[in-house]
């Protein structure tokens, strides 16, 4: 079961720049390590992270082997209108996880 935590304000003013923090639990196994039996452990990493704001992509990242377990990604965006933000992580072995957050925008 994937576990993810998103931290961002629930409300903001139009035009304001907000910080969004996304943390997900994932082993990020590099594929370079050997197990106790001397065999390579299969690679198991998150390959991409995408954030969409009302359907429009506002942030994306490609992840590779050098990223530590439980990746933490923080970024900023300018607030335009009320709506939902969708966060999506995709990875090896069909890993996929989506979180959605709502943002309420006040006019001033």
């Amino acid at each position: 079961m994937a576990r993810a935590l998103i931290h961002m304000p629930a409300t903001a003013k139009r035009g304001e720049v907000i910080e969004i923090r996304a943390l997900i639990g994932h082993p990020m196994e590099t594929g370079y390590r050997v197990g106790a039996d001397g065999k390579l452990l299969a690679r198991d990493i998150i390959r991409s992270f995408v954030c969409r704001y009302n359907g429009e992509q506002i942030f994306g990242a490609e992840l590779h082997q050098a990223i530590s377990a439980n990746p933490y990604i923080a970024f900023f965006t300018q607030v335009t209108e009320s709506g939902t933000l969708e966060f999506k992580w995709d990875g090896d072995n069909g890993f996929t996880h989506t979180e959605t957050m709502t943002l309420t925008v006040s006019a001033t």
Binding site: R3, A4, R21, L23, I24, Y72
Partner: peptide
């Protein structure tokens, strides 16, 4: 708390 990865465990 927004950065602390241990929060994944406390949430669980």
């Amino acid at each position: 708390d927004a950065q602390n990865p241990a929060m994944l465990w406390t949430a669980a």
